[in-house]
Design a protein around this nucleic acid. Structure first.
Length: 329
DNA sequence: ACATTATGAACAC
DNA sequence: TGTTCCTAATGTG
């Protein structure tokens, strides 16, 4: 259930824990045996995310003519990675950062590793387990339907429920990326070029902006929460056609997505309510705990944090869309 | 025990 | 526009 920020965090986690190490891959569930076989024994040499797509590069360093292979994973609506780590790995992973023992939260913030509880972690879970008595660490038995396990002897990553899990050549990876629109988390490309692509993608189409924002060829990495929240923050009606949204408003929307996704990567969760709009926590606690995080998402019928009117909801292309009819024009 | 829900997207008409 | 796929947590009886 991740949007782009979660996938970037996953890429960072793989980079931190797996990069440069030989990996042993398997498919406990049995549905990815062929792919796991291809990758088994290779070294993970790169970890990238583009939009909601995760790409992990594996090289066979013992082969004379190494043919790089990429694991391509898309979590879809249900997919999740779960990590298990030897108890000394977190120490190695957090060198240089202040850290208090027995406080998993601080460790996670230092390392960029997702929180322990599944509810908060947006598809990433981490469990620490003790090394065996003989000093050789083994991950626990897989829980549930694990499509792929990647184990480097210190850390194991279990993948369940992805909508895509495949081994690709470098050319095939390019093909996937070519079909994606600009990614607000792309900090290698020229920012103004990314923004221009987004504006052009929206302005050239007649469909409602709410549909365009969910189209990964228009903007990559934005999902249902960021869609609703970004449009609210910029006061744009979801029903407005793409061609009818002014260029300055679209540029601001893009800038806001850059800000929001970056914030999501840093914080590990989506928080879109500006401090000045946040209600008194004590007043809100029982009534509407979510009000501290989101303006409109899952707030149908509740009162808008800005104008007080009722938040609306309708189904668009099989997904629930939320907006404020007063604040968004 | 069973139904519903979820931060997605490909595919068939 | 509707169907299908994938999994697990949560809600309902």
């Amino acid at each position: 259930m991740p949007e782009g920020h979660s996938i970037r965090r996953l890429a960072n986690t793989f980079e931190q824990w797996f990069l440069g190490s030989q990996c042993f891959t398997s498919s406990p569930q049995g549905r990815f045996e062929r792919g796991a076989e291809l990758l088994n024994g290779r070294v993970m040499t790169d970890s990238e995310s583009v939009g909601k797509h995760l790409f992990l590069r594996f090289d066979d360093l013992e082969s004379a003519s190494p043919q790089p292979l990429w694991l391509h994973v898309h979590l879809g609506l249900y997919g999740a990675w779960r990590f298990y780590a030897d108890s000394d790995v977190e120490v190695a992973a957090s060198i240089g950062a202040p850290r208090r023992k027995n406080s998993s939260r601080e460790v996670r913030e230092d390392t960029g590793i997702a929180p322990l509880r599944r509810r908060e972690n947006e598809g990433i879970a981490v469990d620490q387990s003790e090394a065996a008595a003989d000093g050789v660490w083994e991950p626990p038995e897989p829980v549930g339907a694990v499509r792929l396990r990647i184990d480097n002897g210190k850390v194991a990553a279990d993948l369940a429920g992805p909508t895509r899990c495949e081994v690709l050549t470098p050319e095939e990876v390019e093909g996937v990326i070519d079909r994606l629109g600009p990614d607000p988390l792309d900090h290698r490309s020229e920012p103004s070029a990314l923004k221009a692509r987004f504006v052009k993608n929206v302005r050239s189409r007649k469909r409602p902006i709410s549909e365009l924002i969910m189209d990964q060829s228009v903007i990559a990495g934005v999902g249902n929460i960021y869609r609703a929240e970004g449009l609210f923050r910029q006061g744009i009606s979801p029903n407005r056609k793409g061609a009818n949204v002014s260029i300055p408003r679209l540029e601001q929307l893009w800038d806001d997505y850059v800000y929001l996704l970056d914030k999501g990567v840093k914080e590990g969760r989506i928080i879109t309510v500006r401090p000045e709009d946040r209600p008194d926590p004590q007043m809100v606690e029982e009534l509407d705990p979510e009000a501290l995080r989101w303006y409109v998402y899952h707030r149908t019928g509740r009162s808008c944090l800005v104008c007080g009117n009722e938040i609306s909801e309708k189904e668009v292309q099989g997904r629930r869309l939320f907006w404020c009819g007063t604040c968004q024009k």
